[in-house]
Structures are given as C-alpha cells and as structure tokens.
C-alpha cells in the first residue's frame, strides 16, 4: 500500500520528510506524474500542494519578494508586485506549458526538478534569487547559482524541502528581458531560453546578469559574456565581443528538439539584441 500524506503545516511536512526520505514530495505533479500510468505505485507521497505556509508571496525588506515554493505559475502571473518588479519572471511563467500546467506547476517544483529547460529557472538566476530550504534541523539559504549542482541535481538533502524563493529588489531602471524559443508557440518544451537583467550608469553597463536555459547540463549564467559587457557602452562592438565570449562558455547539444548550432546561434542573436536594446 502506497501511503499518501497531506501534512497540515510545514513543521509536519518536514517531519514526514525526515521520517520517509524515500517518499516523493509532490506539489503540482506536472513533472512527477508525467507518463506515470504504468510506473507502479511510489513508496509514498508527501503532498505539499496548497500548504498555506508555502503558497504565499510576501514582502522582503527593501522591496524584494519571498515567494513560497508551492506558489503556482498562475498565482505568480496574478501577482501585480511580481509583474511590476520582476517582469522577467512573470513573462517566463506566462510561457510555461499552457493554462493547465500553469494552474498546477509551482516554482519550487521547477527548481527541484531542475531540468536544464525549466522555464522559470533562468529568470530566477538572472534576478539573483536565493533558495530557502528547510528540514527538521532548521533552514538554509543558498544563492540559486550555488544551489544548481549539475544535470537535474540540486543542493537539497534527503530530509530537506524547498520552502521559498527570495527575489531581491533590482536596480532602479534595470532592463529585464525574457525570451523563450520553444518548439512551438505554446505548450512547448524550450529549445533555448534567455533571461537578462542589466542597468546602465552614465551610458555604461554597470550591472548585468544573463542566464540561459537549454545550453548546458543546467541553467547557467553567461559570465564571460557578462564580463565582456560590464563597464562597456552597449553597442555593436561590445555586443560582438560578448557573443564571441558566449560561444566559449556554453555547450549546447543536439537532441530531438533542436541542434547545437541553432542553440548557439540563437543565443548569440538574443544576447546581441538584448545589448542593443539597452
């Protein structure tokens, strides 16, 4: 008999997690339940969906937002604070799957699955988010970039759960851009995604984060390209240097959805377009 636990609060969720590390923590189910028909019963499930402590968006000091791990894409889209402060995240959520997936899928689930093509992930990376995880032993806060360890691998112990994502306030006047290149216009798995955030000071790029999906084993920052742009004026010349640097730092692959040439070429085009838009 496969046990299905629906804890009433976070504390009992963490206890259940500690007691049954082999059980599947489940939020929206949009990853775990895919093609589950003939998979057989799991050892057990710990249901987190709708748990109030994980489903809220709250203010952080200074204008950032703390988004509960079980906040759905649909709730993110409905939140005007997210839309006005972090449009790159709203735009990303709007292009995840379609209505049915958005109603159920959660940011925490996207982060936990950590597919290299997870659509919210580049946005969170470009925004400099921090991941909050908890266990019966307490809470840890990890910069998202460090939380990503490898292909579908994150810094989460067997007794831990992701509880929230903290998104810091962005520089005033920062430009935020989201581009999803999918196999089709909606309900698609990405061939490539780019989230970019930058601001200028006196005509020079004073801060920039470019995050890309589907060009490596995990969502990555384009640090060499960023370095090539920092302190430069956004123009053709700096953009060209940046996309050359980009070619040296990402390792896109061929698969059934696209190929490495295309992914690299389009990533370069999108980065160039972003730089020239600044």
């Amino acid at each position: 008999m496969s046990e299905f636990i629906s804890p009433r609060n976070l504390a009992s969720s963490l206890e259940a997690r500690a007691k049954h590390p082999e059980y599947v923590p489940i939020a929206g189910g949009t990853d775990h339940m895919v093609a589950s028909k003939d998979r057989g019963a799991p050892a057990g499930m710990i249901n987190l969906f709708g748990l109030s402590e994980l489903s809220e968006v709250s203010e952080l000091e200074g204008g950032g937002l703390r988004i509960g791990a079980c906040v759905t894409y649909a709730r993110v889209l409905d939140d005007e604070r997210v839309a006005s402060r972090f449009p790159v995240l709203s735009s990303a959520c709007r292009e995840v799957g379609a209505s049915q997936i958005q109603a159920r899928g959660t940011l925490g689930g996207n982060i936990a699955t950590s597919s290299p093509v997870g659509d919210s992930l580049p946005a969170l990376l470009a925004l400099g988010a921090t991941i909050c995880v908890a266990s019966v032993d307490g809470e840890r806060r990890i910069p998202y970039e460090e939380f990503l360890l490898g292909y579908r691998k994150v810094d989460l112990a067997g007794n831990e759960l992701i509880v929230a994502i903290e998104v810091p306030v962005q520089h005033k006047g920062a430009v935020q851009t989201w581009r999803k290149v999918g196999t089709r216009r909606a309900q698609s798995i990405s061939k490539l995604t780019m989230a970019a955030v930058a601001h200028l000071d006196d005509g020079k790029i004073a801060g920039i984060r470019i995050a890309l999906g589907a060009v490596a084993d995990r969502t990555v920052r384009a640090k060499a390209a960023e370095a090539a742009l920092l302190g430069q004026s956004p123009n053709d010349e700096s953009a060209t240097r940046a996309i050359k640097a980009l070619a040296g730092e990402i390792v896109p692959i061929d698969d059934v959805r696209s190929n490495a040439d295309y992914r690299l070429g389009v990533a370069q085009n999108l980065v160039r377009r972003f730089v020239l838009s600044l």
Partner: peptide, 24 residues
C-alpha cells in the same frame, strides 16, 4: 499533460487530470 483531453476544473481551474494524484 500535453494534449489537454483530460482537462477538468479543479476548484474552478483547468488541470490535466492525468497529472493530478487523486489524494490532492
């Protein structure tokens, strides 16, 4: 969860019933 043929309204929202564990 690709085709939407199994869509039902759960608490008023559309979901793919092939992706929802009934315990929820």
């Amino acid at each position: 969860g690709e085709c939407g043929a199994c869509t039902v309204l759960l608490n008023g929202e559309p979901v793919n019933s092939c992706l929802v564990p009934v315990g929820q």
